[in-house]
Design a protein around this nucleic acid. Structure first.
Lengths: 340, 340
DNA sequence: ATGAAAGCGCTAACAA
DNA sequence: TTGTTAGCGCTTTCAT
């Protein structure tokens, strides 16, 4: 029942007939070792299935572990997958391994994951902050030299590096695109809660575009939803209004999917849609959806670069990197609507 | 420049004026401690921002780390995100933390990640095997009591627990659905390489359905593709054939997206489609897409349950759990095609 | 309720 | 080229 004690470096050493340190030298390739010893050691390592205990190593060496921790709010969102991919390829070149965990939109869980990573002495910590989370407790770790980077949204209660999309500009451009096509009643479908950073920024961009065109800001055209289903319902309801929108700016991918669902269910093909964040089927839907594409991979890469620079001793003050978005016109919102 | 040595348990002890062991007792709540000591210790811990070094703890305690490792081939695929979510919620109840890494479809990278997790003494290891990877080297670890579970596909070179979808049955049902609607030329759009487990199984199911209906198996109707773009091209080409398919079974989500792209670009709305793996917009597209839905969360949960049972001492032989798929008819493939 | 000493698996520093 | 000793930060064991 009790599993046999795991093979240790000492076991290997004894079996080979050398000292532990020699085995260590062979495995880590630091000190000089004779070709013969090397071969014998490797053979025994293989035979015994020895796996060095990295924790024991790290504890002795004292430095941080060769991992980078990433915490995301939701595994189901492919946006974060792409972000992670960007980080991964950047840190891998430095021999670091990306480990990630999801907190499932739960601030307490985010805190627990942060502690887990800190306790395991990651080299750097990347966090996509969850709504309601506070990051003041990271102050000490950061002060002690741990690079901390916030992605997609700035952290709360802690000034640290962060990488975000050009939310405001992107939303402004997207809205302006609809306005240029002649729309005057444009709904904004955004995430909840309304205090969410990305939501606030994108709403601000939307308003800037309205202002620039001297269009009134109508609070009733701003819809809240956290899920695709909610967005679909909200959109269907809005379309039944006496003064319905003729176009919609969906402020994130879920909102956009819900919007498509909602307009489809309402049997409406004539509602123009611009989506913040690219969509899998943007090109295929009828009409094809114009998007304000983010670059999640670039966000990840930028974050990794900052973290690596910090590891290299960069002690300049915290900066915020803005990754530009790109408007991809795709039919929807391009032609003057029939209701013009 | 050199960051100050991190605060240790001993630092806290000295500051409070007690022994290290006492601080340890307070933090882990094992031995008895006076209320007064507890408060003083906690205060200093807070003040110094002390983070216990879990590696040092684990090394002394000897047991495995309180983490479960998951390796997936691709972060961009939301399917794996859902699988991870299933694992997460199941292991969390046991106080375990899920850590995952992506190998980006690279067998060498998978190997490195496995070694990383082994070296960090995870409690259990879950792997979605990457094409070309071999898992024989996991034998020792498994023999020493480490639970190893393969997801989505069985591992190579190692008999271990695995959890898979009912690929064959699902593909058969999906194909039968198309046949029942009157289709006789049904294309199969599957992943590359053709040796891929899921691809093989699903193709087998497709063939079973053809056989059952006495339809011929036409090799030219089997299309290979690893990306959405490849699938789109392949489908467009197939539709230009003298004897084009009237229906398509897409064997995974990328293939399905590509198929939708391909048929759309070809201006064909009359091609019936059944997709293995549910799609974001299945319901919205015209016509709505019938899917053979997998249950990725259930796959994750099942895998976690097996691993936990192993941790509890279950030493029965390796088993394979099959998670059923579910046919969701949604218009596409329901009505007799015009070409009947 | 608390402390002292020993030791987990490994490597730094010094020998030989 | 190799071995020895000490010690990383923590917990175990045994004392008090």
């Amino acid at each position: 029942m009790a599993s046999p004690r795991r093979t240790t470096l000492a076991d290997v050493a004894q079996e080979v007939g050398v000292s532990a340190k020699t085995v260590s030298r062979v495995l880590n390739g630091d000190g000089p070792t004779s070709r013969e010893t090397r071969e014998k050691v490797m053979a025994v390592v293989e035979k015994l299935g020895f796996q060095p205990n990295l924790m024991a190593r790290n504890i002795r060496v004292g430095g941080p572990d060769s991992t980078v921790g990433l915490i995301i709010p939701d595994m189901g969102n492919p946006f974060f997958g792409s972000v992670a991919g960007g980080i991964e390829s950047a840190v891998r070149e430095r021999g670091l391994t990306l480990l990630m965990g999801s907190c499932a939109d739960d601030p307490a869980r985010e805190r627990a994951l942060i502690d887990t990573f800190l306790a395991r002495r990651v080299s750097a910590l990347m966090v996509v902050p969850t709504v309601g989370a506070d990051h003041a407790h990271l102050r000490t770790a950061r002060a002690n030299g741990l690079p901390v980077v916030f992605l997609d949204r700035p952290g709360t209660g802690l000034t640290a590096d962060s990488v975000v999309s050009s939310n405001r500009d992107g939303a402004r451009e997207g809205t302006a695109h609809l306005i240029a096509a002649g729309h005057r009643r444009i709904a904004f479908v955004g995430d909840r809660p309304a205090t969410l950073y990305t939501r606030r920024e994108r709403l601000a961009g939307y308003r800037e575009a309205l202002d620039a065109a001297d269009l009134p800001y109508d609070r009733s055209l701003v819809l809240d939803c956290h899920t695709e289903a909610e967005a679909a319902d909200a959109v269907q309801r809005a379309l039944r209004d006496p003064q319905p929108p003729t176009a919609i700016l969906a402020a994130n991918n879920f909102a956009a999917m819900g919007t498509v669902l909602g307009t489809t269910r309402a049997g409406r093909r004539d509602v123009a849609l611009v989506s913040f964040d690219d969509l899998p089927f943007a090109e295929v839907l009828e009409p094809a959806i114009t998007t304000v594409a983010q670059d999640p991979t670039a966000i990840g890469t930028a974050a990794a670069e900052i973290a690596l620079a910090r590891l290299d001793g960069d002690r300049t003050r915290a900066r915020t990197v803005t990754v530009p978005t790109r408007l991809i016109p795709r039919g929807s919102g391009e032609l003057p609507p029939t209701t013009r």
